[in-house]
């Protein structure tokens, strides 16, 4: 390490490699975004040029907003994501509290049972999930998606949250018990605020896969009224394959919300990933 510090060539090589990979990572996103603001001719003539006064055009965005109900899709995605995250955090934290706080028969077994779902993807059960949603009339409702994502997110949430809850001091909880607080008050007023960083980690981990999922919206809620943004843009782009302006604009509009979420939460996400929460 001391050698690397003394050697500027080494540092330059490291930056060179990282810059090269950063360019590879960002190039496709950049190309899509700049071309969505160009006229059709400019898209084909100079795909790598930035839009200028001559080539600037919003025609693609106009088509998208006229043809697709992107605000509705966005709203659906929001409802599903926020709803599932709320339930994952609430139910997950409650179960994690029960497992980490109380000794009871079957505690270990219950923990193992809930952990099964960390490794087994919920998609395997799709056929029966669709059957069940049809039977209960939940098919083509946002509830179907919220329930599936909640079930999918719970195992890892319980696992991470119970690790964190074991670290909450026992003295604190026992002092509260002596003061006559109920177990529910201890959980909601005392423990939940203390594990807020862990809750944020769980939320950020679950947020992106839920927002981006294509499989379950396609199978459980493909109706026009319940399309999520991911499914909506997939269908829209499929219909407009030859209208490059519209396709590029639709892609940009799908990229934007995720990018905004990422800018807001990237610190939390990276801290969560690197804090060893998934070890």
């Amino acid at each position: 390490m001391s050698r690397a510090r003394a050697n500027p060539v080494n540092a330059a090589a490291m930056h060179g490699a990282l810059i090269l990979y950063t360019l590879i990572a960002l190039f496709p996103v950049f190309v899509i975004l700049i071309n969505s603001f160009k006229t059709r001719r400019a898209i084909f003539r100079e795909p790598l040029a930035l839009p200028d006064a001559d080539s600037f055009s919003l025609i693609g965005y106009q088509t998208v907003l006229k043809q697709g109900d992107f605000f509705l899709y966005f709203q659906n995605s929001m409802i599903v994501t926020v709803g599932s995250l709320g339930l994952i955090l609430l139910f997950g934290a409650m179960a994690a509290f029960a497992l980490s706080e109380y000794r009871f028969r079957g505690n270990m077994l219950m923990g193992l049972y809930l952990a099964l779902g960390i490794m087994i993807p919920i998609r395997i059960g799709t056929v029966a999930i669709l059957d069940m949603m049809v039977a209960t009339g939940l098919v083509n409702t946002l509830w179907a998606l919220i329930l599936v994502y909640t079930a999918q997110g719970l195992p890892l949430a319980v696992f991470i949250l119970s690790e964190f809850m074991r670290q909450v001091s026992d003295d604190l909880k026992n002092a509260a018990r002596v003061d006559g607080l109920s177990e529910y008050t201890i959980f909601f007023r005392l423990v939940l605020p203390l594990v807020r960083p862990a809750l944020a980690t769980v939320a950020v981990f679950n947020m992106i896969p839920i927002w981006n999922d294509l499989w379950f919206p396609l199978i459980l809620a493909p109706s026009e009224a319940t399309k999520t943004l991911t499914l909506g843009s997939q269908v829209f782009i499929g219909q407009f394959v030859t209208d490059w302006n519209a396709v590029l604009s639709a892609l940009s509009m799908a990229i934007l919300p995720v990018l905004v979420l990422y800018v807001i939460f990237s610190r939390q996400l990276i801290r969560g990933l690197t804090s060893g929460a998934v070890k």
Partner: peptide
């Protein structure tokens, strides 16, 4: 950044 984008994009 690519990791946060959906497969569709």
């Amino acid at each position: 950044i690519p990791t946060i984008l959906s497969f569709v994009i």
